[in-house]
Design a protein around this nucleic acid. Sequence first.
DNA 1: CCTGGACTTCACAGATCAGTAAAGTTACTC
DNA 2: GAGTAACTTTACTGATCTGTGAAGTCCAGG
Lengths: 193, 193
Amino acid sequence: MSTEPEDEGLTPGARRILEVASELFYRRGFHAVGVDTIAAESGVTKRTLYDRFRSKDALVAAYLSARDRQWRDVVLSRLDDAGADRVARVLAPFDALPEWLDAGGRGCAFINAYAEFPDPDHPAHQLVVAEKSWLRDLFHALVVEVGAIDPGTLGEQLLCLHEGAIVSHAILGQTSSASTARSAAEILVCRAL
Amino acid sequence: MSTEPEDEGLTPGARRILEVASELFYRRGFHAVGVDTIAAESGVTKRTLYDRFRSKDALVAAYLSARDRQWRDVVLSRLDDAGADRVARVLAPFDALPEWLDAGGRGCAFINAYAEFPDPDHPAHQLVVAEKSWLRDLFHALVVEVGAIDPGTLGEQLLCLHEGAIVSHAILGQTSSASTARSAAEILVCRAL
DNA sequence: CCTGGACTTCACAGATCAGTAAAGTTACTC
DNA sequence: GAGTAACTTTACTGATCTGTGAAGTCCAGG
């Protein structure tokens, strides 16, 4: 789970800062981690941190943006694996879950960020909404593609199953939740054709 | 959404503190709200706050405990409404959602608390796990009661739908998510008989 | 040789954090 | 009328928070 993509344009120090910040934000939470800690664990001074990222909020936003990009890549890759099988394509986001959840065990970084940034004007909050909107729209598009009777309803239902699987896996350690959610999704999809 | 039950045993000041803390913790998050703010908004000195609740952590725990009790009461009440209809009983937690979600708009206090308290030893974390465990066990019991073929799987799936409905309602403002999740649950339950 | 970028050192500002000390007030009860 | 519980006022500790200022080091490219 390294932070490779588009890290071009980042100095070596900035890359290390972003890597360390990603880990700490995800593990311990945003407010619980101070910039001093991030700088120290990156082997970098606080001055450098503020030279590369204008503020802590900007660093948080950079983290969430990178995470978002990674997540979309995983899903798109699974979507590619599904090929032309329209039902398999609808289920692709569920297939992306296991690798995504096992690395971490702290659930969805965006749901967690939502908890810590209630202000709708905060960039972190907006990134959270953007990430979930993307997934909602993706489900909707895939459900339209598969020719479902009521794509609006079915799309919402699949999104619920997906997000719920993440939550119950994280909080209850329910390791089977990704696959059981997937099979529920399959039932709903096939029933709606 | 007042904090009535078992507030017997609480002094008037303590009751106000708990009410204010509940609102602020839910609205702004746990780490984002300081004890000074809570005391000031309660019309109480910090000294009183610490005399009633030993620490901020204890106040957080008191809030989550009260919230847990309220949630269980709502669900049990809906369960009562369902009477002997076994399918309606399984869907009761979904019927409890609308009133629970509309008051607030900040999603599930426990999912939010999970984000802010990663340490499994922290009392708040344990209360979160306890709340979700209760709901998981309830779904399981109701699904057994209804005579489902594979109660383990179905119970997990219903929990996913339920938690996902909360998340997508909160983050995306998806006001229909409770009812669409409910209808998905109904399909899954009826199919599993 | 010189410039510019990446980074360091270190001191510091100003706010806010959780939590405590000591003493005093109010009001109800036995 | 003594005692007690709830609560007040004020002041304080020590830690931590985000963010800045000013100066200096190191090094690659022109």
